[in-house]
Computed example of a mutant assay.
Amino acid sequence: MRRPKSYPFLRVGVTGGIGSGKSTVCRLFSGLGRHVIFADDVARRIADEDPEVKQAVLQEFGPTAYLSNGLLDRKGIASIVFTNRNKREKLDSIVHPRVFECIDAQLESLSRDTSFPYILVEAALIFETGMEKSLDHVIVVTAEEETCIQRVVMREKVPPEEVRRRIASQMPMTKKSRRADFVIQNNGAESDLRATVHFLDKVLFEINAQRES
């Protein structure tokens, strides 16, 4: 992502480890009427539809990278990249530049509407890819590791050992939290999380209002 001259809204990243609840946080923000760009959704669309990206993935991972319906074999690719750092970095180098371009295009389009106090960009790898340089603030969502593991096991029906391998492949949450502007701890009930989101919504609204005054 590049930093444009100005936007009429704040650009706020939301990140966190697998199972931390960052998507739930974004859903709660969305329920307040805030616009959310989900980087994972953008990446999925690009991997499935962008001819240049598909060709590069096929060259790197072979013909089994895509299913017979033309969609990326996400489970198969995940089993490779979560255990092979070089392959993970190669996949990121193929997909992420196009993801950044698409997010930039969405932000440019949204900038015509001055009613947004802020736009959220939900992405797992904000700090790892340097995306934070193009954002005004970053929210990190955290949770106890065992809580994260239990959530992913229930959601994806995978063994706990696989989730632990994924967590080990990511930037430590303590490091992400130190680099964050705001940290949301998501270990309790959703009602507690909702209250935190409501409070942070007011804070971000006020920050943007002060910026415009």
Rank of each mutant, 00 (worst) to 15 (best):
P51D: 12
P51F: 15
E52C: 10
E52I: 08
V53I: 13
V53Q: 07
K54T: 05
A56E: 04
L58H: 12
Q59L: 15
G62L: 05
T64A: 04
Y66L: 07
Y66N: 05
S68K: 15
N69Y: 03
G70L: 14
G70N: 09
L71H: 10
L72V: 12
K75L: 10
I77W: 01
S79V: 11
S79P: 06
I80A: 06
R85A: 14
R85P: 01
R85Y: 05
K87M: 13
K87T: 01
K87Y: 04
K90M: 09
I94T: 03
V95Q: 01
H96S: 04
P97S: 11
R98F: 09
V99E: 00
V99W: 04
E101W: 05
C102D: 06
D104G: 07
L107H: 10
E108R: 12
E108S: 14
S109C: 09
S109Q: 15
L110F: 07
L110Y: 00
S111L: 02
R112K: 15
D113F: 03
T114C: 11
T114G: 09
S115N: 13
P117D: 04
P117S: 13
P117M: 05
Y118S: 08
I119G: 10
I119E: 10
I119P: 04
V121C: 08
V121R: 07
E122D: 13
E122C: 11
A123V: 00
A123I: 05
F127R: 14
F127G: 07
E128N: 09
E128S: 09
G130V: 02
G130A: 06
G130Y: 05
E132P: 03
K133V: 01
S134F: 06
S134D: 09
S134Q: 11
L135M: 11
D136H: 13
D136V: 02
D136K: 08
H137W: 11
H137L: 15
V138A: 09
V138Q: 08
V138N: 09
V138W: 03
V140E: 04
V140H: 13
V140I: 11
V141N: 04
V141R: 02
V141W: 01
A143G: 02
A143I: 11
T147M: 14
C148Y: 00
Q150V: 09
Q150H: 13
Q150F: 07
R151T: 08
V152Q: 03
V153H: 02
V153C: 07
M154D: 12
R155F: 03
E156Y: 08
K157Y: 03
K157P: 00
K157C: 11
V158E: 01
P160W: 09
E162N: 14
E162H: 14
E162V: 13
V163F: 02
V163W: 09
R164K: 12
R165G: 06
R165F: 04
R166Y: 02
R166K: 10
R166W: 01
